[in-house]
Design a protein around this nucleic acid. Sequence first.
DNA 1: CGTGTTTGACCGGCGC
DNA 2: GCGCCGGTCAAACACG
Length: 262
Amino acid sequence: MEFNSLLNTSLDLNATPLRFQDERGALVDELNRVSAENKRLTEMLAVVSENYKDLHNKLMENNIKNPGMDNTAASRKRKTEINGSASESSSSDEESCKKLREEHIKAKISRVFIRTQASDTSLIVKDGYQWKKYGQKVTRDNPCPRAYFKCSFAPTCPIKKKVQRSSEDQSILVATYEGEHNHPQVSKLEMTSSSNHYVTLSSVPCSTRPSITLDLTRQKTSSKVNRPEFQQFLVEQMASALTKDPNFKSALAAAISGKFLQ
DNA sequence: CGTGTTTGACCGGCGC
DNA sequence: GCGCCGGTCAAACACG
């Protein structure tokens, strides 16, 4: 139930204070607690944004100092592939550039955390795109199977998605996106799944960026947070801090508009 | 019958 | 060189 309506209801019951005084007091306490929590989260958000800005600036400086050195996803696989292409005397510069571009796409990795119903055992994440499942695997570090998806909307779309339940909290789905779509989003309506009750707030991070997970499902938000301008402010602040990354921004907007308006 | 999903086989990278 | 592991393929299967 909407917290504000709860509060209003309790205020309407002033005529019978003996009966509802305790409940009203509890609600006021709850309001204060939620307001404090919201303030704390806002501060945390500001800190995280600042940290990200710093890291991003350092990354940019490093890229300028070391052009061609992509240290955002320094997997051993990538290193060997890049080294291999660089050392191949037979491969042309064009091929090397092409490989580097492909590697750059692969380096664009983002993670999305989605709270689902405990009973929901599917590995479906509705994010507005059409996906084709091409594999499933049980990995060593997590008893829950990992599903592999390719974008089915455009055959040439290089993005891949991995979805796996968190080993710590199996009600949380972790979707890992590798690469970027090379086409517009199919359907924004699909972004808010009825079964996905949590945040779809993504970290945007090639390994150096901070990872954020916000719990926006706590519906007892203050009236200030319910204001559209505040939501817009939050969206703009975070989005600008995260350098307009499309994955992050769309997920953030969906999370804020969807959950705060509930 | 077409489309999407499942699942075992296969491949390549990596550590020992 | 061998085994482990994650990722991908493709045949079989399910479903509308």
